[in-house]
């Protein structure tokens, strides 16, 4: 332990808060990537993304109550949200293609209200408490102090998911189609690819990632019908700061936003919201396309 301080805060505390920020950022990354993929490929602003996050958390918590297995919840929540996403794209969003960006935006906005109300009716207004599973409880010494094991798991697991996603997009045939389709959907069609199937899959994948983020976030805060609302706002900040449609940008921006939130809450807990929007304004002033916008689209 050192006695160094910055602005009155011991260095160790700042270090721990930084890791807390990374853990928070991991959630933002997962939610932001989904939002960014869907926008980058389909030009659809998914306003229901926060609701998918929330319903994913509920599905996970509900299943955990039944089976007692957090690992099962970790698989089932994204799977369920992926399937729901497929159905939503196929039935609700698809008829709106070619009608500009507003219609799908309004549709998903309305859908988010339906999902939130549905959960309120099914599970009540107050939300459910949820803690980390027993095997992930406790804290470990990370050199600068004790840090909750669950948050370390959250960081490692999210990074593994992002890594797998990166491999999928960079190394597989479908990933190649995704990268090409984000830039030029028409040429992809001319080369024999049924673009509507690609869009369907991407919408499902994005929603699955939101559901995964939801169940991962549940042990940090419990679940409430409104838990997706601030996350949606933060995910938008992530996609704008990172650059719309940029995978690497979403990762970078997610971590930055997480760290900014964690650090601000240390100094001025009431100003975290303002801090991330100030960050967004600042990035937009300097780089209107976001940190990695276009130059690294889906790269």
């Amino acid at each position: 332990m050192s006695d160094l301080t910055i602005g009155g805060f011991p260095l160790d505390l700042l270090g721990l808060q930084l890791v807390t920020g990374v853990a928070l950022g991991a959630i933002y990354v997962l939610v932001g990537i989904g939002l960014s993929l869907i926008f980058g490929l389909m030009n659809v602003v998914n306003f229901a993304h926060g609701a998918f996050f929330m319903v994913g958390a509920y599905v996970g918590v509900f299943l955990y109550g039944y089976t007692g297995s957090f690992w099962l919840s970790l698989v089932a929540a994204p799977l369920a949200m992926g399937l729901l996403g497929l159905a939503v794209e196929r039935v609700l969003v698809r008829p709106l293609y070619g009608r500009g960006i507003d219609d799908p935006l309004l549709l998903t906005f309305g859908l988010s209200y339906v999902m939130v109300e549905g959960v309120r009716i099914a599970f009540g207004l107050t939300g459910l408490p949820f803690g980390a599973p027993p095997e992930l409880r406790g804290a470990v010494d990370i050199g600068i102090g004790y840090f909750p094991l669950y948050r370390l798991f959250l960081i490692a697991f999210s990074m593994a998911v992002v890594g797998a996603l990166w491999l999928f997009i960079e190394r597989t045939a479908f990933g190649l189609v995704i990268r090409a389709g984000a830039r030029d959907p028409q040429i992809v069609q001319v080369l024999g690819i049924e673009i509507s199937k690609v869009w369907l899959a991407i919408f499902g994948l994005g929603c699955a990632l939101a559901g995964l983020a939801g169940i991962l976030a549940a042990p940090l805060q419990g679940v409430t019908p409104e838990m997706g609302i601030p996350v949606l706002a933060e995910a938008f900040v992530v996609t704008v700061v990172g650059g719309m449609g940029s995978l690497a940008g979403a990762v970078l921006a997610g971590l930055i936003v997480g760290i900014v939130v964690a650090m601000t809450s240390l100094v001025a807990p009431d100003m975290t919201k303002m801090a991330i929007f100030a960050l967004m304004a600042l990035v937009l002033l300097v780089r209107p396309r976001g940190l990695l916008g276009r130059a690294g689209a889906l790269g």
């Binding site: 045939a173 190649l176 189609v177 990268r179 090409a180 830039r183 030029d184 028409q186 040429i187 992809v188 001319v190 080369l191 024999g192 690819i193 689209a297 889906l298 790269g299």
Partner: peptide, 28 residues
């Protein structure tokens, strides 16, 4: 039936090889 558009439509961000692969993926 194949089509080479006037603007060529080489996909930015992809290598030459990836652009070529894109031409045969759907036939897999």
């Amino acid at each position: 039936l194949a089509y080479v558009p006037e603007e060529r439509r080489i996909v930015p961000g992809l290598t030459v090889e990836e652009n070529l692969r894109l031409g045969i993926l759907a036939a897999r």
